[in-house]
């Protein structure tokens, strides 16, 4: 297979970036998208050019590091998959493929397609945890959790923090990410003591980072590689309203 790639190249955070065209041939349909970029980079290196910088690590769809906006979509056209789990068989021979970084004020570009998602870490640091020090725990089975709630909590906890929700959202909103963590904890008994504090602190940090607001378009849910549901955003709204205007 062969493709025409239009790849965003930007030397560093402050440099001016632009789309650069690359033609690539001899691509196997069973290659992953990142393996295709590997092949391109190998060629660039041997031609003495600068290879395309991009984030990636586990290449099995779980670490959340890979992050490309491909053909106008976060992680490309494959449903419920990260970029590393996107295979070239998903494209047609001869396609023109745009490859851009996640775009959000809160995710500044490091280089080319790599962005800084430290904002997510800071949101977690603001309240995305249960305050329990090592050694303070009681026996694990002393705290039964209704299976339905455990399952819902797990659904929310499946978030890999890749940022596709922000990338896909027209407002670069981080509501799906924040709501997933708030939901997980709100659904579990362990999360109750800090429930209101968590919702307030995480939302305050989210706003301070410069993410946009939620317009309920559903783009985040549609592009999330882990299929995190919009119901989590509704739950976050409830948690926040409760914490702000109802809870004592």
């Amino acid at each position: 297979m062969k493709f025409k790639l239009k790849v965003w190249r930007q030397a560093n955070q402050n440099a001016q970036g632009k789309l650069v065209d690359y033609d690539i041939d001899g691509i196997n349909a069973d290659m992953s998208f990142l393996e295709m970029v590997d092949v391109l980079n190998d060629k660039l290196i041997k031609k003495g050019e600068d290879p395309i910088a991009f984030d990636h690590d586990c290449r099995e769809g779980i670490c959340g590091m890979c992050s490309m906006y491909i053909s106008g979509r976060a992680h490309g056209p494959q449903h419920a998959a990260t970029t590393c789990q996107l295979y070239m068989r998903k494209f047609k021979d001869g396609d023109t493929i745009y490859v851009e970084p996640w775009r959000a004020r809160a995710f500044p570009i490091v280089k080319d397609l790599a962005v800084d998602r430290g904002a997510f870490d800071r949101i977690i640091a603001a309240g995305g945890f249960v305050s329990v020090n090592t050694g303070q725990a009681q026996d694990a089975n002393n705290l039964p959790v209704e299976k339905a709630f455990a399952e819902k909590a797990m659904d929310a906890a499946a978030c890999i923090g890749c940022g596709a929700c922000v990338a896909a959202c027209k407002n670069a909103s981080a509501m799906l990410f924040v709501s997933a963590k708030v939901s997980q904890m709100a659904l579990l008994p362990q999360g109750q003591p800090e429930r209101t504090r968590r919702a307030l602190a995480m939302v305050a940090q989210m706003d301070a980072e410069g993410f946009g607001n939620c317009t309920n378009t559903g783009a985040c849910e549609a592009e999330c590689p882990k299929e995190i549901s919009l119901t989590n955003i509704a739950r976050l709204n409830r948690e926040y309203i409760n914490a702000s205007v109802i809870a004592e």
Binding site: F129, V130, V132, T134, G135, Q136, A137, Q138, A140, L143, P144, V145, E146, K147, A150, A153, M154, A157, Q184, M185, L188, Q190, G191
Partner: peptide, 15 residues
Amino acid sequence: QCVAQGVPFAREYGG
């Protein structure tokens, strides 16, 4: 420790 942190381990119907 992990359960106390909110790690969502699989549960039986009894919780």
